[in-house]
Structure formats: structure tokens, C-alpha cells
């Protein structure tokens, strides 16, 4: 199976490229990027071919592509790939507007190709353990959840993460969608209302987008859940950040810290302690699922629709923060 990467804008492309070069049954076709310096550099580092245009890569006949463009640029690449008959794994958030998201779903549906959203947390071993616990009914019905996906200011990885024109927003778009998706998956229920408060006190002098955000979601089954999506980890925090969930069930409570599996390193060579992860790599499992779904001609475990519904929560949060009111879903 031939798989290419469209754009190396997103930092996660690094991990996908590394895995695609090593997966049995996968031929890493190459990397197309509208930034030739970035694309050529990546192609050289991962020992693959560089395509100067997206059309060139699609013309080389990929079975599938991974779209890692900036958030607001997903749509044209997904539409091109669909027209070329390539299955698509699209980086999260799926899109930054409802119209873009709908167009992407329709394009892939029409072309008969898979659209999968890159939600690697669905493949995190600690998260899967919680999912199994819940599905076995160990906690009873889930009534409430307190969740966090906090991180450092991501500008250190890619400058566009804090550019509203390319990212679509700040911390809310960056960090809400993972948890919105996991909560929908855990609860088997859709979000019906969102309340959010945001601010720009952290890094307020250097970025234009919100850096602090708190959301409170209501689900159709009556459960409620909060999400802290803040970029509240200082530059000298031991890691980029993390993702935690505390779920209150009728029969008990479970806490999960998805990035807890690490060593603490105190080194005279570093300015601060750091955490060295030894967790199972969820990216590998996510790419394997993408390949398996294509091979079996089945729906992947995470769909484009899942990406759309998670994006909708983030969009509702922006509306709520702007108006100070509770915003009902689905959005029109």
C-alpha cells in the first residue's frame, strides 16, 4: 500500500513519517509540501521522495495520504486527495469551520474513500484500559467528568500554531478536540450544550489567540464534563503537557493520566527536570488502524464524522466565550 504525506506543517507529521517508513506492507511514497525547504528537509531525513506540489504526489498513485497541513488548510488537500481516489487520514482538528468540515465529509463520501481523523488518544494504552473498564460496566453509568489537555505554548514547535489565520484559534482548537472525542466515545452520547470561558493572560504580550480555556459540556444522556484546554505549562515544565480524565460513575471513579508512564530525569546538563516517556506509541497503532480499515474496506475506528463532532464542540466553545451564554448543539 502506497501512502504519502501532504504537507509537513504539523509537528505530528514527524512521527507519522517515521512510522510509515517502518510499517510492514506500507510503501512510504513521499512527502509533498508547499514549503520546499521544509518538505525537502523532511524527505531527506526520512529517506523518502519529495514532491514539489500536492498534485505531483497524488499523480504518483497513492492508495492513501496523511494530511498534516495547517488547520485552516486541510479542506483543499482532503478534497484533492478524495478526487484522486486516495483514502485520507487528516490531522486534528478536522477543520476550523462547519462548512469546511462538511465539504470534507461529502468529498470523501462521494469519492468512496475513507476519511479518518487523527485522534491518537483513541489508541493510547491507558485510555484503552479505561474504555474497556467502562464498557465492562465496572463504573456504571458515567455521570460527570473533569478532564484536562494542558500544554506549553506550542509556538516552540511550529509558529503557525498561534496564528489565528492558520490555526483557526488558540488553545481551544488545539486541545479541546481530543477530549471532546474521547468523551463522546466513552459516553456513547453527543454533546448538546457548551459553556466556555477563555482568556489571554499567559503569553498575552506575544500571541493574539486565547491561551487559557475552560469548557463545561452537557451530553444528551445528562452527563456533564469539563475540559481545561489551557496552554498553562511553562517553558520549563518537564514535558510538553498532558491529558487527564477523572470520570465519576454510579459505581465508582476512575482517574487516568495518559502520559504518566515516564521516567523523571534530573541532569546537570539540563536546566530543569524532564520526563522521559516509556509509553506505548499510540501513533503507530493509529496508522495501523488506518491501513487495516483500507485493506478490509471497512469504516475505521475513528471517522471523519468523529472529527467533525469534536470540531463542533470547539466552535461552540468560541461562540460561548464570545457571548457569555450556553451554546446549544448541533450548530447550524
Amino acid at each position: 500500500m502506497k501512502i504519502g504525506i501532504l504537507s509537513f506543517a504539523h509537528i505530528h507529521a514527524e512521527s507519522y513519517a517515521w512510522h510509515l517508513g517502518r510499517m510492514p506492507g506500507v510503501e512510504f511514497l513521499g512527502i509533498a509540501d508547499d514549503d520546499p525547504v521544509r518538505g525537502e528537509d523532511a524527505a531527506r531525513r526520512y529517506g523518502t521522495r519529495f514532491f514539489p506540489t500536492y498534485a505531483d504526489l497524488l499523480a504518483a498513485g497513492p492508495d492513501a495520504v496523511v494530511v498534516c497541513a495547517e488547520n485552516t488548510r486541510h479542506r483543499p488537500l482532503v478534497e484533492m486527495a478524495a478526487q484522486a481516489g486516495a483514502h485520507v487520514l487528516c490531522e486534528k482538528p478536522l477543520a476550523t469551520t462547519l462548512a469546511d468540515g462538511q465539504a470534507m465529509l461529502e468529498a470523501c463520501e462521494k469519492a468512496g474513500v475513507i476519511l479518518m481523523t487523527a485522534f491518537p488518544m483513541r489508541f493510547s494504552a491507558p485510555i484503552l484500559e479505561v474504555k474497556a473498564l467502562l464498557d465492562r460496566g465496572q463504573l456504571g453509568k458515567i455521570l460527570a467528568a473533569n478532564t484536562t489537555n494542558q500544554g506549553q505554548l506550542p509556538r516552540r514547535y511550529r509558529a503557525w500554531f498561534v496564528d489565528p489565520a492558520l490555526a483557526g484559534g488558540g488553545a481551544v482548537f488545539d486541545h479541546t478536540v481530543h477530549l471532546a472525542d474521547l468523551l463522546r466515545w466513552f459516553l456513547h452520547s453527543e454533546v448538546v450544550a457548551v459553556y466556555a470561558q477563555t482568556n489571554r493572560i499567559m503569553h498575552g504580550d506575544t500571541v493574539e489567540v486565547e491561551t487559557g480555556g475552560l469548557l463545561l459540556l452537557t451530553f444528551a444522556d445528562g452527563a456533564f464534563a469539563s475540559i481545561d484546554c489551557s496552554w498553562s505549562r511553562p517553558a520549563n515544565y518537564p514535558s510538553w503537557g498532558g491529558l487527564t480524565m477523572e470520570l465519576i460513575g454510579q459505581k465508582g471513579v476512575v482517574h487516568v493520566d495518559a502520559f504518566r508512564q515516564n521516567l523523571t530525569l534530573y541532569s546537570n546538563r539540563d536546566e530543569h527536570p524532564s520526563w522521559l516517556s516509556w509509553q506505548s506509541d499510540p501513533d503507530r497503532a493509529m496508522l495501523e488502524e488506518f491501513v487495516a480499515a483500507i485493506t478490509a474496506r471497512r469504516t475505521p475506528r475513528v471517522t471523519g464524522y468523529d472529527g467533525y463532532k469534536a470540531m463542533e464542540v470547539a466552535l461552540a466553545a468560541y461562540r460561548s466565550a464570545a457571548t457569555g451564554t450556553v451554546v446549544q448543539l448541533p450548530l447550524e
Binding site: 453509568k141 455521570l143 470561558q197 469539563s226 454510579q250 459505581k251 465508582g252
Partner: peptide, 12 residues
């Protein structure tokens, strides 16, 4: 429904 009261709040 619940084994005990539980609440989440957001303050501005």
C-alpha cells in the same frame, strides 16, 4: 442516580 453530590463550576 449518583453515589453523592458532584459539581463542576467555571468562574470568571
Amino acid at each position: 442516580i449518583s453515589p453523592g453530590d458532584h459539581a463542576l463550576a467555571i468562574l470568571r
